[in-house]
Design a protein around this nucleic acid. Structure first.
Length: 263
DNA sequence: ATGGTGGAAGGTCCA
């Protein structure tokens, strides 16, 4: 059985319905994990997404900010919402797929502009969130699991357009990179995208709206990730990033990341 | 150091 999973920070699910329709038509994921839905659950466009084929939905949103969802052609069970770092913000949902795979969808806090936890509460919140994740997943390392989402950290030198110029920019600072790698180490996670594309090759999943020409300047970062636990490595068929989506009409600033599994 | 754009708002806040 082949399962195709997409993760996409849509920057408002209601503003991205045409993009979701095009993604469903052209790429046909079985499961789409969304971040930054920016809508409370009662106003989530459930019927529109159901009409695209994704009748099974786990949503956890709030007004204006954050918000995540898992939308699936297949049945989902044991769906849960979890809060982190003392805030109720709609940043994590998870559920079970058949055959017995746990799927986690995260929107990790961006962390504000100043990379100093003593003066920037948002950066402190991000570091606390990452630390809590490392502890929680350390206690679940025997799970057969997939973790996707906008993790808001670009861990490797070739996950950013300029390692040197972003060392002091939130998303690529050494303290965030160490925190993300600590989650991977303690939770026994493997980076599915880097499993297929060597670290020597630049890979981005986000380009700022503020660039005059995002494609030619290409000042991107890889903030969106798909991880799997080791028992799923033999099932990995492919993992890739849909760069062209950034050039679609009315784009998100993030593009989808895809995984094909044969389980 | 600042601004550049986009989204939810209908103030600004956030990315």
């Amino acid at each position: 059985m082949r399962i195709r999973i997409a993760t996409w920070n849509v920057n408002s699910v209601r503003r991205r319905l045409a993009g979701l329709k095009r993604l469903a038509k052209e790429v046909s994921p079985d499961i789409i994990c969304l971040q930054e839905t920016k809508v409370e659950d009662a106003k989530f466009p459930a019927s529109e997404i159901s009409e695209l084929g994704y009748q099974n939905q786990v949503i956890y949103g709030q007004k204006s900010y954050h918000g995540v969802a898992i939308c699936s052609r297949y049945n989902l069970s044991d769906s849960k919402r979890r809060d982190w770092s003392g805030k109720i913000e709609g940043r994590h949902v998870y559920c079970r797929l058949e055959p017995n795979i746990e799927l986690h969808n995260f929107y990790i806090p961006a962390g504000g502009n100043i990379p100093d936890q003593d003066v920037n509460e948002k950066f402190l919140h991000k570091l606390n969130f990452l630390e809590e994740m490392s502890v929680w997943f350390a206690g679940r390392r025997n799970a057969r699991a997939i973790l996707v989402g906008d993790l808001n950290v670009a861990p490797s030198a070739n996950d950013v357009w300029s390692h040197r110029r972003l060392l002091d920019v939130v998303s690529h600072t050494p303290i965030e990179v160490a925190a993300l790698k600590n989650i991977m180490a303690k939770g026994n996670w493997v980076d599915a995208v880097r499993h297929f594309t060597p670290e020597t090759k630049k890979l981005f999943s986000w380009w700022s709206y503020r660039a005059h020409d995002w494609s030619s300047s290409n000042r991107g970062r890889r903030l969106d990730h798909i991880w799997v636990t080791p028992s799923l490595i033999p099932a990995l068929d492919a993992a890739w990033i849909l760069r062209d989506t950034r050039g679609w009409l009315d784009p998100s600033d993030h593009v989808p990341v895809l995984l094909d599994l044969d389980v």
